[in-house]
Design a protein around this nucleic acid. Structure first.
Lengths: 245, 245
DNA sequence: GCCCCACAAATCGTATACAATCGCCTTGAC
DNA sequence: GTCAAGGCGATTGTATACGATTTGTGGGGC
């Protein structure tokens, strides 16, 4: 319902202006606290910052050409989001998001999505139904053109549409948060061959269940839809990390 | 697992030292950023601060005898927790936690608790089982002595025990967060007569289901256990708010 | 040789000062 | 009389400076 004034749609902008340039103060366009948060967040989720790495306030401040104050604010927000860990008088460290925790997060995500689907099947409004259909159609298009990146984006929209359709604003917000946090990891597993087509097939089943008003089925399908992602991802990570957790 | 360095057990202290004295800097014991957060948080959840009220940084700073810096930090954390809304260059306003949103939150809480119970029934370890039994026993004691406040505390422990037993640290943390946010509202509905005894009976059933390894039953019982609270609470609020919504 | 205490370095947390932005009120013109 | 534009006030956001707490190291004592 009410946009929380900062949690909504800001990550897209950050993803676009990613790049490696530290973005020093370029004559008049100072970086603000929010931008710093986005950039560091990107760096963490993309793995540019290693887990356990200490991020020094002064160093970050110097890098962006700002003082410690906005950096502190950014770090605090990241700590609230669970991306960094604040040790009282030691500093801020990027939290190690181990494989185990990731699986846990996918497990919770599956439950929340399932819940949203169940509720959506019962409560979906006409306007939300239209948006859901549109989102599915966009997914079909992207898949037909065999465009993974596009599909990735439309997939976002599809899931957002389900959140919005569930009739529980709080749930929608929580799901959005988690979705955002898993974003980086989710992206990887779309590279798996055939995953896109299978994902699309699952999407169709989900929409069918929702349209039929079958909450139980929608829930079950969404749960497995997410858990498959989690498992695939676990396989992927396990296959390319030599040292293992 | 990892304590998030600030989200854990801090509200109890705030509840104790509540009071009306603004707690000006009393010779050597300055109030810190965290304390300010706790105090304002208490004021918001207890309704001392009206919804929509703007909380002025300078006013708060003056009241606590500190500068604006720690106040800003406290307000930011409250914004992250969803208790206040930050409007870019306008200020911070305590968010209206309407009845509708509360019901939504209880709905999500029920789902998460149900999930925790389901997982706990399958995965519970021996040590966690002991703690769960102890927590239940403590609830029994409190109920036997007809001590609502004590029961309230032991009830907390009971649910925490389930979170810990579910084997999913991330879920446990999320559940804790939500539980904390609903704390103030939860407390009210224990005043409802007979609620304590009924709650205890439900606790027994939940433990029985978990001990039996029956995940489905544990989930169902926990869900209804929470939803009953939500509904009771909705009744309560609806009965004592004249203007509605 | 080991342990304890003290000092120093570093870093966090807070205070104070400044700049930039936004809303509102007043004033002027149409 | 109404609308628009500009200035003014207030408030947020950032910069810089200081104090307090903690950690690590070095020296002295047992």
């Amino acid at each position: 319902m009410e946009t929380t004034a900062k949690g909504a749609g800001e990550s897209a902008a950050a993803a676009g202006s990613d790049g490696s340039s530290p973005r020093r103060r370029s004559a008049g366009s100072r970086v603000k606290s929010g931008e710093i948060r986005e950039i560091i967040e990107q760096e963490i989720v993309t793995g540019e910052r290693r887990a356990g790495e200490r991020l020094d306030e002064q160093a970050v401040a110097a890098r962006f050409g700002v003082s410690r104050t906005p950096v502190r604010e950014a770090i605090n927000q990241l700590a609230s989001a669970g991306l960094v860990e604040l040790i009282p008088n030691r500093g801020a460290f990027v939290r190690a998001t181990g494989l185990g925790e990731l699986v846990e997060m996918f497990e919770v995500m599956a439950e929340l999505e399932g819940m949203a689907g169940r509720l959506a099947a019962r409560r979906i409004a006409a306007s939300a139904r239209v948006r859901l259909r549109e989102a599915l159609a966009s997914c079909e298009n992207a898949a037909a053109r065999d465009a993974p990146d596009e599909y990735y984006y439309e997939n976002e929209r599809f899931h957002q549409a389900i959140y919005d359709a569930c009739g529980n604003g709080f749930l929608a917000e929580e799901a959005r948060r988690l979705h955002l946090r898993l974003k980086a990891f989710r992206r990887l597993q779309l590279r798996v061959p055939q995953r896109m087509r299978q994902s699309l097939a699952e999407h169709r089943g989900i929409v069918a269940a929702i349209e039929a008003g079958d909450g139980e089925r929608a829930e079950a399908e969404l749960k497995s839809h997410i858990m498959v992602q989690g498992e695939r991802f676990a396989d992927l990570v396990a296959s390319l990390t030599p040292k293992g957790s």
